[in-house]
Design a protein around this nucleic acid. Structure first.
Lengths: 201, 201, 201, 201
DNA sequence: GACTAAACGAGACGGTACGTCATGTCTTGGG
DNA sequence: CCCAAGACATGACGTACCGTCTCGTTTAGTC
């Protein structure tokens, strides 16, 4: 750690260092426009104008608007993966789902959906969203579900895959139709219903 | 329609009418490109080129690409709303959901998602899809659910709204992440799990 | 000529016809900027801005700035090739050279030189200038010189090629050094000197 | 003046001295690109790339591409002003003109013309070329012509200015049209013709 | 031998213009 | 009157250089 000599990737950053201010201005501008006008109307020139930078600075660091949109989005939302690991699987899943809803609620959710849109065309976006959002949450969920199964907290004959799909789908599907993430109240109702079929209490 | 004998594409380029042919060529071309390249890369010029028509002919009948995409999509998929009304609400819902999955499976589903999600910017698209696809099915589902409630087929304390969300979400949500509609097997597993919590049997 | 039916290249111009107004506005703007700022600072975007047209309209009809500059230039100067064919070769050449000087004097000459510059990179420009300006004048001059030789108006041992070079070079060479075409007075002095060696009187 | 020790502006050059290697690499690269691609396509970045230096090193010592091009050109050609001062003005002028042609022949001549003519916009280029090439030669020529006049070697009524224009123009004017400097043979023919009218023999 | 200061390579910065492409509108001529 | 063809003004695309500006690294002389 203290060893500055044998850092594995000992890359000397030559040339003028990247400007933090520009980077932040660009991401902020992109997010603003993404939320205000939607993904389809997000233009690189617009972002450059809004951020007060040159286009080349954007193209130097991002591959295009989809790439930029992804990073703008993730730079803005609270991406932290809160792990709730009490003894009760049901409580843990409920807490996590409500927490995710909180993170995606409002403009952030619109931007999230907007990006998933962009991702349809550009595989890189989809994969980025998957990697940074979906995968960690899915991995945690699978693990937690496996643990619950071991602990005998699942009802008989419950397939973990189907159970996870049932628990999480109501959170995402409204985004497909241009709606926001459901309210906590609605989400709770869905969750409790699903939980009836899944968890042993 | 009845005339199956005369050569199928017997277009005598003499004289006047081309209206129907153009219209169909345009819709076909639009669908082809929509499926092949996705919504975002669908261009009016591309459609005109593919269909061998002038751009103005497209603009005369449609408002823009979103409008065109919607109509192209619905002109192609089997939009029929199959109503299953046996005595068992569970059977009816299962049949309908699996039927919808069949309609949306494959390229059609991708186009569907592309439009839904790509049309987020243009409210007209979302509203068209809602009007032609979502609303009829939701209306039927609400009605069927109310009927089931009356008939005492629901378990105690089941909120119809939440129940519907739980039943239908697993069908749609994968579309948001660039995946296809789930397989019948997966869908069945989800449905059966949800049904445990919802229907009295 | 009057036969409108059997025109050899009977091309039916489909689509919207080219706009004369745009064409003229573009050429005028190009000329204005060419003269004001020089060839090197002539930009397509500048011309489009000045002319109030789109860039694509320029690119649709011209290959680039050099091509545009050529046409702008020739659309503006009096390109007419005045043929002076009196009995005296000396008088004819003098008249033609002074006439050319008149056409190239002032901004036009600067533009002419500017284009020859542009032509260094883009062979098309050089060839265009050659074709529309140089060649006709050189052809005439060669013919006139041959005629003079036949008529015994040349002194002994005068090579026509060298004689032509001697007569015309003083007109052009100042352009190379950023100067204008010489004054009539200077030109006359040069011409008379050369004429001493060339023409028999 | 002869004192190389106590130069008037005896500035002690603190810091790292200018790198000769860089300077030369830059000039060489500039010349290479100037000849290969012409003046218009000469870019600072291209030179820096070719020379393996940073752009700032170029901008530190030159004002821009025109300035650089001028110096690159003159660093390469044999700029020496050969003075031929025999008793015969005709012989002296002929020798000098043929000598200049030799210096300007080939790629160097193209570069020369490229700069002259490409530098039309930037007065600095033209003036530099004038100062380093044209002026010394013109001064010598004027002097030599005056001397010839005094010595009675000119024919009656010969204006020195016109005579000089006549003698030198055929050398330069082809450069304007993208051609090379004339061959010695052609140049000789022109010169001899002009000489007939100018020199007394 | 350490210090100082300018020149060096590298390359990021805000820009301008490039030449291409799609937009949605318009204007023709022909069937 | 409809329709293909296609010209039009607009504006974003992604690229190439511009000339300026940091950086960390040489490379002399001066202390």
């Amino acid at each position: 750690m203290a060893d500055t000599i044998s850092t594995p990737t000992d890359s000397k950053p030559r040339g003028r260092p990247r400007s933090r201010a520009s980077r932040e201005a660009i991401l902020l501008a992109a997010l603003k426009l993404l939320i205000r006008d939607g993904y389809e109307k997000l233009t690189i020139e617009g972002v450059a104008r809004e951020a007060g930078t040159g286009k080349s600075t954007i193209y130097r660091w991002w591959d295009g608007r989809s790439d930029l949109a992804v990073e703008a989005f993730f730079s803005a939302i609270d991406e932290t993966l809160e792990l709730h690991e009490s003894g009760s699987a049901e409580d843990d899943f409920r807490a996590q789902i409500l927490g995710m809803a909180g993170q995606l609620r409002g403009p952030a959710g619109r931007a999230f959906a907007a990006m998933l849109v962009g991702g349809r065309e550009n595989p890189a976006v989809a994969s980025a969203v998957r990697k940074r959002w979906l995968d960690p949450r899915r991995d945690w969920a699978r693990m937690r579900m496996a643990w619950a199964a071991e602990a005998g907290q699942l009802q008989d004959g419950v397939e973990p895959r189907a159970a996870l799909a049932l628990l999480y789908s109501p959170l995402y599907s409204p985004l497909l139709f241009g709606n926001d993430v459901p309210s906590d109240k609605d989400l709770r109702a869905c969750f409790d219903l699903a939980a009836r079929a899944i968890f042993r209490r």
